[in-house]
């Protein structure tokens, strides 16, 4: 085996061994989030009269 080929095989073997370790270091990927149960801010009761009024917001 030529030296370049030997070094290539060595690098490939090292990468194969390191890949699972590297994967563990990468952040976990999420598209859908877990549904939160507790709202972090204040929660108030819905007022039907307020619901019937058009919103002050655009859109």
């Amino acid at each position: 085996m030529r030296r370049r080929a030997f070094l290539g095989s060595l690098l490939a073997a090292a990468a194969a061994l390191a890949l699972p370790l590297l994967r563990g270091l990468l952040p976990a990927r999420w598209t859908e989030a877990v549904r939160g149960r507790l709202y972090p801010g204040p929660v108030r009761d819905m007022d039907p009269a307020e619901v019937r009024r058009p919103g002050r917001w655009a859109g």
């Binding site: 877990v34 549904r35 939160g36 709202y39 972090p40 929660v43 819905m46 619901v51 019937r52 919103g55």
Partner: peptide, 11 residues
Amino acid sequence: AVTYGHPCSVH
């Protein structure tokens, strides 16, 4: 998703 099921505006 921390606002799930908790709208701040309903009109």
